[in-house]
Each structure stands twice: as structure tokens, then as C-alpha cells.
Nucleic acid binder design. Sequence first.
DNA 1: AAAACGGGGGC
DNA 2: GCCCCAGTTTT
Length: 216
Amino acid sequence: MKPTASWSASRFGKALEALAGRRPLTMLGRWKARRVDPFRLLIGTILSARSRDERTDRVCRILFRRYPTSGRLARARPRDVRRILHDIGFHRAKARHIIGSARRVVEWGRMPDTFDELIQLPGVGRKVANCVLVYAFGKPAIPVDTHVHRICNRLGWVRTKTPEETERRLERILPRRYWLRINEVLVAHGKAVCRPIRPRCGECHASRWCRKVGVG
DNA sequence: AAAACGGGGGC
DNA sequence: GCCCCAGTTTT
């Protein structure tokens, strides 16, 4: 399907509009609303991988009080960072990743703002890189996490095996004006309604446009 | 393509 | 005890 003005009249467009209208603020949404500095958004997003947001928030507050800037984090002792990260798990790998990323940013002398630069940072994959582009710089990108991947397939928008494949398909079928908000809309929906197991289809405002692939 | 990383909270 | 959690890296 080609992105056109009539897309919003299509089955996909109607489902997305139905969900977009009633969305609570997610973690990234809250950070964006606070206009956090791009470096902190980067670090917070790296830390959020496979961890619950409340815990990530708590850890970030402590982390940034002690290491307010990339320069400070770049010079941190890994041992101290590991202790702070203790309660979100993956502390060994994540401590290495965020210190390494801070050092790279210091080397470059500025916060990277392109996909090709961001993807080189340790702990940064396609999802985190695209989140930084969207939420820190307002650039068009589609961060595809497990929620987005699951829901797009469940709705019947795409039929894909991997998140990367989903991202490439969405780039083809989704008009640009939706790119900045589809992630936040679907993640909020995925946590509250369209859950991995036992989705609450009775509460879903997009139910009438949904193929319910793999449900029931 | 699949496994490893990882501790805490919910059930 | 077993499961999951805004993924990335390594095998």
C-alpha cells in the first residue's frame, strides 16, 4: 500500500486513529514532556531494555544526580555504576554500555543525531537509536519494540517475523505524519489492553478493524 | 536463528 | 519456583 492522504480512511488508519485519541503518557512520553536532554534520553532508553519503567525511572534519578553529564559518566568507575544499576538487572552489561556510550559521545564532542552514528554506540540497537531520533530530535523514525511488533501483526497490518522487518514494512505503508507517535500509541495500548497474553479485546477501540491474528 | 544477559516483583 | 520486563550482543 502506498502512503496517501486517504490512508486515514483505510482499515489501518482508522485503527490507529481510534487508539491515538485515548492514550496515556508512556515513560518516553513523560521524558519528552519534561524536555530531557538528549544524552539523558539516550542513557535512559538504553537502560529501559527488558526492565520495568518505574525501576528505570528510579535508577535514572540516582544515576543522573551522581553523573549529570556525558563527561562525568565517561569518567565513572564501572564498579560504582554497577551498584547504582543493581535493581534493574543486566547491571554488568548495561554499566559497560552506558559508560562506553558516554565515552564515545565525549570523543565525538557532541551528541550524535543520526541513525548511523547512534547505532555505533554500545547498547544501542535499532529500537534505541530510533527512539532517540524521535523523542530527542523530532526526526522521522519508527522505533519498533515487542509491543509495536506484536500489535502490528495482531491487527493484520503486517506479517513479519522480526522487529526489524516490521520497521521496514511500516516505513513503506505508514505515512510520515504517524511516525512520531505510532510507537507511543501502540506501547501504551500494548501495556493496558493489547497485552501479549489475554488481550482485553472487549476494551479495545480498534477491535472492529483488527484481524486478531493469534488471539483466542 | 537461538542463547545469554540478570535481578526484582507478581502470582 | 516460575514467569515477565520500551532489546542488544554474542554464538
